[in-house]
Computed example of a mutant assay.
Amino acid sequence: MPEHPWDQAGPRFRPPPGVTLYVPVVVAFLVQVPPTIGVGLWLRAEPRWLLLATALAAASALALLAARAFPGLTVAVVAAIVTADLFLPPEVGPPPIALAFAIVGAIVRGALIWALGSVGAAWLVVVVVGGVNGHPWHPLRIAAATLALALCFAIGAGIRRRVERAASHRAQLVERRRANDQAERARIARELHDVLAHSLSQIAVQSGVGLHLFDREPERAREALASIRRLSATGLDEVRGVLAILRGDDADSTTPTGISLTPQAQLAEIPALVAERTGHGLTVTLDDGLRGRMPRSGIQTAAYRIVQEALTNVVRHSEAAHAVVHLSCEDDVLVIAVDDDGVGSAGRPEGGGVRGMRERAALLGGTVDLTVGPLGGTRVLARLPWEEPA
């Protein structure tokens, strides 16, 4: 099958899962723990407060190890640890980078409510408790902290949108690839059905005739066997042609019997098709109203395949004695009608051949309908545009 052009750019680079989990932990630990110890020693903080502040700084960094499995709980725990650390001496210290990682990670992983609730509650506790205890925070510090928190939320939301867009894009690629593969399978089935059903149905009829006349009329049986040989060779060449097109082989190549591997049947071949179908109790006639006018090659090929499949169904299912193929042009529309006087198709489910006719017509902007015909059997009515769509 052909390569998908939307896959040519290749997959985007994604860091290993361990990197996205452990790098924030290491960065937060290095940014928070050594500076906490250094600031405490420089300001000569009491050992107990220094030890507790260092433990909280390390705990907030190590809590990020649970961010992938429990992003909401992680941001709540880190927010609580950072809040407690703010009330410990000394008042200055390194930025709580672990909280920033926790906020961004929670939003990216879909825990926005947890992040809003936890950070909002922590912010209120810090502002309110600080005022009640007689240690109000400087307005600039509150504004800077609020702005930093808002920036973390904005970064998390931006990354989340990018992740969602990437997931949506991947889903579209998967669906597009599935639809393309399905269309390719349908095309292969349609092409193989068109060439095989015609030849095999004729072989089945001729083999029945040969068996019936083998003892009584050996000459006619010999003719049936010769017809079977010819039909099998033609069918094999057509299958080779379809497979060559599906593989993208050279369109000018030929089979060992000299037949082109490109099965581009045209309307000019319909009289031979009609003559081939006539016999063994079935009379097929052609009503050609085109008067030598011919549409584009692709339209002709589709028209031929539709007539071929309709006549195949007449032979296999209709029990008809007479069938008529009508060709006409109405307002730049090629009209094809195949009528028979058989049992009709009412109550019989549509098979792959009818679906193939409809698909072939739809690809060109045309239609195929099955109705009761004027001869009492089934009418296959196809309408195809005279010009191929751009």
Rank of each mutant, 00 (worst) to 15 (best):
A100K: 01
P374E: 12
L370G: 02
A362N: 07
L375M: 15
A100S: 15
A66F: 02
G72F: 07
A76E: 03
Q266N: 07
I299R: 00
A186G: 06
R44L: 13
P11G: 14
R296L: 12
V314W: 03
A221I: 04
R222P: 05
I97H: 03
A244T: 08
E319F: 13
L151N: 02
R178Q: 12
I188W: 14
A323G: 06
Q264D: 15
R240T: 04
L21C: 10
M294C: 10
L213S: 03
A346I: 14
S318C: 00
V333M: 14
E219K: 13
G110L: 08
R187Q: 13
D252Q: 15
V33G: 01
G342R: 00
T146M: 10
V242Y: 01
L192N: 03
A310M: 09
T312W: 01
V125K: 05
I188R: 12
V284M: 00
R178N: 14
A179H: 09
H317Y: 15
A106W: 00
S60V: 05
G377H: 00
R229K: 09
H212F: 01
R170V: 09
F214Q: 07
L211Y: 05
S260I: 09
N133V: 14
V33Q: 00
F13A: 11
S168C: 05
W42R: 08
A382C: 10
E219M: 10
N180L: 12
P11W: 09
E217N: 11
E330M: 06
A121Q: 03
L286R: 04
P96I: 04
G366V: 07
H280D: 03
T255Q: 06
H193Q: 06
A55W: 06
A154C: 06
F101G: 00
P94C: 10
V368A: 03
A53M: 04
P24G: 09
G158V: 03
R220Q: 03
R379K: 12
G347I: 02
R141H: 08
L290M: 13
T254Q: 15
Q300K: 13
V242C: 03
R220M: 02
G18D: 05
E309R: 09
V354R: 07
V108D: 02
G248A: 07
G156R: 03
A55T: 13
